[in-house]
């Protein structure tokens, strides 16, 4: 067996298109997932039953089902209830974002709960309302403790983005499949895709290790 990466380099354009697709869905899911997660996390933290119970059901459901099942549900099942089609990007983004929202909600809740009650008392003594105290005092402190876990979530989202290929969204793995089937070079094509993912993700993983070390040192 002779390795021949020339056939992969000839298709650099296709891989670039795939990389753009991967980065697009990653960005969408990162923003949607982590911001929706904050809302759900606040719902989980809330003592108001009308917020707490729906948030809990949401978290339990999306944490306890596989994300690929969610994506396929949004792609094949949901359009039957809707008057319009759902694109592969929309289905995959919905699945990955909602899944990430459920996981990050627990990170936000844990982070907020880890802040001492004295901080709340102090904020209230200064005349802040709940929302102000949360925004100005609690969240900024909690965010620092949550940063390593949130970075890990981002890494998971990046890895999950490959599942979008199951509904034929054009991303890196999908392009790898295309190149492999056109050039009969699965070894080189899939190795190249794996290496590209590693190159994207390795710095992010090292960054998360750094954040974890720093947090351990500071606390």
């Amino acid at each position: 067996m002779r390795w021949d990466f020339a056939s992969v380099f000839d298709n650099t354009d296709a891989l670039l298109v795939g990389a753009a697709g991967t980065l697009r869905i990653f960005a969408i899911c990162l923003v949607l997932g982590l911001s929706l997660g904050l809302l759900v996390g606040l719902g989980r933290y809330s003592r108001n039953r009308w917020l707490h119970i729906p948030a809990t059901i949401f978290v339990e459901f999306f944490r306890n089902t596989p994300v690929l099942v969610q994506i396929l549900w949004f792609y094949f099942a949901l359009p039957i209830l809707l008057p319009f089609q759902i694109s592969p990007l929309a289905a995959a983004s919905l699945g990955i974002s909602l899944n990430s929202a459920a996981f990050s909600a627990e990170i936000y809740r844990g982070g907020i709960q880890s802040i001492e009650t004295g901080q709340w008392d102090g904020a209230r003594a200064l005349g802040m309302r709940w929302g102000q105290a949360m925004r100005r005092i609690i969240l900024p402190q909690a965010l620092k403790r949550m940063l390593p876990a949130l970075t890990n979530r981002a890494i998971e989202i990046f890895k999950m983005s490959t599942l979008a290929s199951a509904v034929a969204y054009v991303e890196l793995l999908q392009q790898g499949k295309l190149i492999a089937s056109l050039n009969y070079n699965p070894i080189e094509a899939y190795t190249a895709v794996a290496v590209i993912f590693f190159v994207f993700l390795w710095p992010l993983v090292q960054f998360s290790y750094f954040l974890e070390r720093r947090l351990r040192r500071d606390e």
Binding site: M1, F158, K159, M160, S161, T162, L163, S165, L173, G176, K177, A180, P186, I187, A189, Y190, T191, V193, A194, F197, F198, L201, W202, V205
Partner: peptide, 17 residues
């Protein structure tokens, strides 16, 4: 550090060859 789906495709399509 690499996505499991990429690993799966590698072991299914690339490694056997």
């Amino acid at each position: 550090t690499t996505p499991p789906l990429v690993q799966l495709f590698w072991f299914f399509f690339a490694m056997p060859i």
